[in-house]
């Protein structure tokens, strides 16, 4: 079961949690097997990407691959849409590519 985790009250109880580990922007977080990357990020660092045209964090909107506001990157540069990608153990993700800084 997930430990004392401030996000726990947003995750609903299910029969059997299986915990996996992901890394986002270099920080480690726990996630739940079966959830999407978007859910994992909402519970973890709280956002998915930074808006291009002025400083603003984005964390998705529609959860059904319509709004396209939840694209981010694997550390190796591959693009992924958070709401349609399942979180996997060991995923290393970045919400900002190095050249964006």
């Amino acid at each position: 079961m997930l430990g004392k985790d401030p996000s726990k009250s947003r995750r609903l109880t299910v029969a059997h949690d299986e915990i996996i580990g992901i890394t986002v922007d270099g920080c480690s977080y726990e996630a739940r097997l079966g959830e999407t990357v978007l859910t994992a990020l909402r519970m973890a660092n709280g956002h998915v990407h930074s808006f291009e045209f002025y400083p603003e964090k984005r964390a998705g909107f529609c959860l059904m691959s319509a709004c396209q506001d939840c694209w981010l990157w694997h550390e190796d540069g591959r693009r992924l849409r958070a709401c349609t990608t399942r979180a996997e153990d060991g995923m290393t993700l970045v919400t900002l590519l190095p050249e964006h800084c």
Binding site: T13, M43, C62, L63
Partner: peptide, 11 residues
């Protein structure tokens, strides 16, 4: 989206 978060993501 809120509904999907509840139903499909249990979050």
């Amino acid at each position: 989206g809120a509904q999907i978060a509840l139903k499909a993501e249990a979050a």
